[in-house]
Every structure is written in C-alpha cells, then in structure tokens.
Amino acid sequence: MKWDITEHALHSEFRAEVEKLSGQNLGDCYQCGKCSGGCPVLPELDLSPNRLLRMVQLGLEDEALRNETVWCCAACGTCDSRCPMGVEILRIIDVLREMAKNRNVTPPATAGRVLTFYRSFLDCVQEFGRLSEVALMGSYNMNSGRLWTNMVKAPWFFLKGKVSLSPHKIRQIDRLQRAFKRVEEIESQ
C-alpha cells in the first residue's frame, strides 16, 4: 500500500480532532506493535491496530476511517491492557467509528454488517428502552439482507424458553426518546 504523506499531514486537523475526542496523545504511541500482538480478530483483519494508529498519526483520514478494523474490532480491550505507553487504543477506535458513522463513510463490505447490527440494536433500544433479542435478530436480518443469519440457532432459543416474544417497553419511554434526539442533535452540530 502506498501512502501519500505530506508535511501538512503530520500536523493534520484530523489527528488533532481524534486526540481531542479520545483524550489520548497519539505521540505516545511508538509503534511497538504490542497492541496488535494480542488482538484476537487480527487474523481476519486488513489492518492491525498499530498500523491504524499510525495512519491517524500521519493524518491519513480516509484510510483511517474506511477499513475493516474499525468495525470488526470486538472491543475486548486487550490492546489497551498491554500497551506499554498506556494508550487507550479502544477509545481511539471508538472515536474513529463514531467519526465514520457521523461522516457517512461507507464501511467495506463485510464490516458494514457490523454497523448495520449496531444500528439495529440501538433502533430497538430507542423504540422500547430495552433490547429484545427476537426483535433485534429480525431487524438485523432485514436490514442486512441476510435473512437466515442465526436462524439455525433460533429453534434452540424457542425450545429452551429463552426468548420473550413481547418486547419489554419501559415506562418512561418518552424521556428516553427525547434523550436519543438530543444526542443526535449534538452530534450533528
């Protein structure tokens, strides 16, 4: 992969913004790679966590926001706990995902399913206040176009009485929905 790095990129607004939102100093990362050594999903990724951080250090905004790693990171926190410099890598990845979402950066193919899943999850919470696993599975399968995902597993859930078919709606749902709106407003500013 060829990266185009200019003097300007090293002091990019992008890097400054990631630092501000995450509360992390990107200069602390000296690229030792320990974070990536423990990353459980690395075998399936196009980009290791330390290289992702390098992109942010170099101000490579498009590359840092559009890749599989930001979406397929399982949020396990192993990278954080092993970083000798105490960089909170997961917090930085969360910031990148949020930026990608707010700027409507389309994730690469399979990674897009993860964003669809998160959206379906939060839609359900917004509607009922609590997550109904049945509603989530249904809406994720609809939204992702993967109608039969996990359907082989579904009979177990029914057989074992593990699903409540009626979603649990909270009492103060109006207040919750106002909170969702307010957050959306703040984020779009």
Binding site: L21, D94, Y118, R119, L122, V183, I186, E187
Partner: peptide, 24 residues
Amino acid sequence: DWVCCGATAAHATSHLLSLALPAI
C-alpha cells in the same frame, strides 16, 4: 424502570449515548 446499557453498539457509535443510557 432501568434501560438497556447500550453495550458495544452504543460505545462504538456514540460516546454521549454510551454514557446517557447507563446514567439513566
């Protein structure tokens, strides 16, 4: 009247929401 904590779905996509939900 507890609400969902938002789990990874919230902290991966909205820092504010990931704090607001547990705070309720």
